[in-house]
Amino acid sequence: MDNSSAPAHSLNMIIKISGHHIQNLNLGQFKPHPHSTIHVIKTVANYCPNLKTFSSYVDGDEIDHLVALFTLCVNLSSVTLTGPRNSEISVDDMFLQLARQDLSNLQEFNVLGAWSFTSESLRQFLMCSKAPIRTLSIDNCFFTDDHLDVVVHCLQNTLKTLRLRLHIRNRLNEESVIRAKGFVDVLEIENFDNYRVSNNNNNNGGESSIFKHKFCKKYWMERRSR
């Protein structure tokens, strides 16, 4: 079910009416209703007990609703979450709460927004939730060698594909990368940088500037032969 373009109130009503039958739900990768006070993720958590695949944009004020989603939608196997690219959202408390849940069906987890979390909260989440994650994607988060070591240690028996897209300031140590290569079938690491460019279409004559992403060459990708 893909309802990313529907008005928030209509989408909310559809989910309440037919939520019990929804197994796959894609709410879109961008914030669809910036001025709406309706929290669709909260509605999904309460009305979609059979949900298996979920994808949505998540703002900072919706993190608590994600906890409810994982708690009430126990069949979730694939979750993709996007969010703001500039201001980081701290999710340490969320990870610690999810560490108390049984996520034994979660096989794919994609975080595609500027989330901030410590390696310790990540460790507790991965270890205690018993999530058998096979595919993990981290994009635009603060991610260090300690985080990578936690991923390798906690998911060494299940993880097959690891995709990291990190700011150039978070370049990983070669030793950490080598260790990760020994445990996964597919490892992709891409670094990007920000550069300032002139906005010539600006009304003030182009004197102001905006940030855009400049993507560096993907410096490593390997498929380990079986």
Rank of each mutant, 00 (worst) to 15 (best):
residue 5 S to L: 04
residue 6 A to W: 07
residue 7 P to A: 03
residue 7 P to W: 08
residue 10 S to P: 03
residue 12 N to G: 10
residue 15 I to T: 01
residue 23 Q to D: 02
residue 25 L to R: 03
residue 25 L to S: 01
residue 25 L to G: 00
residue 30 F to A: 14
residue 32 P to Q: 08
residue 32 P to Y: 07
residue 32 P to W: 05
residue 33 H to G: 03
residue 35 H to F: 12
residue 35 H to I: 13
residue 37 T to Y: 07
residue 38 I to H: 06
residue 38 I to L: 05
residue 39 H to D: 11
residue 40 V to H: 00
residue 41 I to M: 05
residue 44 V to P: 00
residue 47 Y to C: 10
residue 48 C to T: 11
residue 48 C to H: 13
residue 50 N to K: 10
residue 52 K to E: 09
residue 56 S to N: 09
residue 57 Y to I: 03
residue 58 V to S: 02
residue 59 D to A: 03
residue 60 G to D: 11
residue 60 G to Q: 08
residue 61 D to Q: 11
residue 62 E to K: 06
residue 65 H to D: 15
residue 67 V to I: 09
residue 68 A to L: 11
residue 69 L to N: 02
residue 70 F to M: 07
residue 71 T to N: 11
residue 71 T to M: 04
residue 79 V to E: 02
residue 82 T to Q: 09
residue 84 P to C: 06
residue 86 N to W: 09
residue 86 N to T: 11
residue 91 V to S: 04
residue 92 D to S: 10
residue 93 D to P: 03
residue 95 F to G: 00
residue 96 L to C: 10
residue 102 D to K: 15
residue 103 L to K: 05
residue 104 S to M: 14
residue 104 S to Q: 10
residue 105 N to Q: 12
residue 111 V to G: 03
residue 113 G to P: 05
residue 117 F to K: 03
residue 118 T to I: 03
residue 122 L to M: 15
residue 122 L to S: 05
residue 124 Q to T: 01
residue 125 F to R: 02
residue 126 L to Q: 08
residue 126 L to N: 01
residue 129 S to P: 06
residue 134 R to I: 14
residue 137 S to H: 13
residue 137 S to F: 15
residue 139 D to Q: 14
residue 141 C to I: 02
residue 142 F to N: 14
residue 143 F to M: 03
residue 148 L to R: 04
residue 149 D to Q: 10
residue 150 V to M: 03
residue 152 V to R: 07
residue 152 V to Y: 04
residue 154 C to D: 01
residue 155 L to P: 03
residue 159 L to Q: 01
residue 160 K to W: 03
residue 160 K to D: 09
residue 162 L to G: 02
residue 164 L to P: 01
residue 166 L to P: 01
residue 166 L to C: 04
residue 166 L to E: 01
residue 167 H to A: 01
residue 169 R to I: 13
residue 169 R to M: 11
residue 171 R to E: 10
residue 171 R to Q: 13
residue 181 K to A: 04
residue 185 D to Q: 14
residue 186 V to P: 01
residue 189 I to R: 00
residue 189 I to V: 09
residue 191 N to S: 07
residue 192 F to V: 06
residue 192 F to P: 06
residue 194 N to G: 03
residue 195 Y to M: 09
residue 195 Y to E: 07
residue 196 R to Q: 12
residue 197 V to G: 00
residue 197 V to Y: 12
residue 199 N to S: 10
residue 200 N to R: 14
residue 204 N to H: 10
residue 205 G to W: 04
residue 207 E to K: 13
residue 208 S to T: 15
residue 212 K to H: 05
residue 215 F to Y: 14
residue 218 K to T: 14
residue 222 E to R: 04
residue 223 R to T: 15
residue 223 R to W: 11
residue 224 R to S: 09
residue 224 R to P: 01
residue 224 R to N: 08
